[in-house]
Amino acid sequence: MSAASSRPARWWASWVRLLDTREPGTALALFRIVTGLSLTYALGSMLAADLVEVLWVDLAYGGYRSLEGRWLVRALGGATGAVVHTLVAITLLAGVLLTVGIVARGAALVAGQGWLALTTLNPDAMCAYDPLLTNSLWLLVLADSTATLSARCRLREGRWTSDRLVTAWPRYLVIAQLTVLYFGTGLSKISVHWTPGGGFSALYYILQQPSWQRADMTWLASVYPLTQIATAVTWLWEVTWPVVVLALWLRRHPDRGGRLRRRFVRLPIRTVYVAIGLTMHVSAGALMVLGPFSAITLAYYPCLFRAPELERGLSRVARRRPAPAR
């Protein structure tokens, strides 16, 4: 076999080996729990505000406009009150099952299709977190997310936590999805206000928009330079997020050498990006009404860490003795 033809074969073999990696399922379990809670909250808040009928039911049955819906809604007979409320109930139940960790893959599939059917009923009332949540639920169909921190674990092993190993590739897909989200939203920021030419004034003016603000935000004028710094940091952080994936990849084999790898192993790139992300999402949640967007996005963050790192962090938070490193 020639060198040229063996190189793709070697790449493929490395790819297969990478996907064979197994690890404790803590990160995926946390992703499942926060995603399930976010879905439950998203639907629960719709019910609490009595908005299901208004936004998702057709004009002929009590809504305010004509709605068509996707194949599932059409197959069930259209956006009538009964169909929509049944879909809400089933999706909500699936969200609860997903959170507690019973039949999680099936629950994620049902929840994903239910959520997709409901949120695409009225395109005018769609939020940015709707497709993100649908993506999360599909990733949970692919992942074994109940190995630990789940009712299934409790039933199988008599305790809530377990070191049982799961395949790591769904966690890699979660990281890929987060990267596409941040990088994509960074690339789409085309306004002059996001650039030095516009004085990095985007966040100041976005926070003046009545649509998302929690309260009057004119006070931000007194700290305008801070909003300029925040704008620059947010935009740079988003468009350079792929560097986190590169850092994670290079840190996977610190022993292999190379100047770039040595530099990336030394620099706390992931820590810096996660800290900025947490600050950004918490600030956005405090200043703006964005629904469960921050929670749905932050559900992805545990997957940036390997299980031993997460367990050490959780132990520290719980003020317990740190778990031994694997």
């Binding site: 994903g112 940015a128 497709p131 649908t134 993506n135 599909w138 206000h193 004034s201 928009q209």
Partner: peptide, 20 residues
């Protein structure tokens, strides 16, 4: 089929002329 949409246009342009 699965709704795995990947268009993430969020806060693309500050709306300088909003309405209440």
């Amino acid at each position: 089929l699965l709704g795995v949409r990947q268009r993430w246009r969020m806060f693309v342009v500050p709306h300088r002329y909003p309405a209440k």
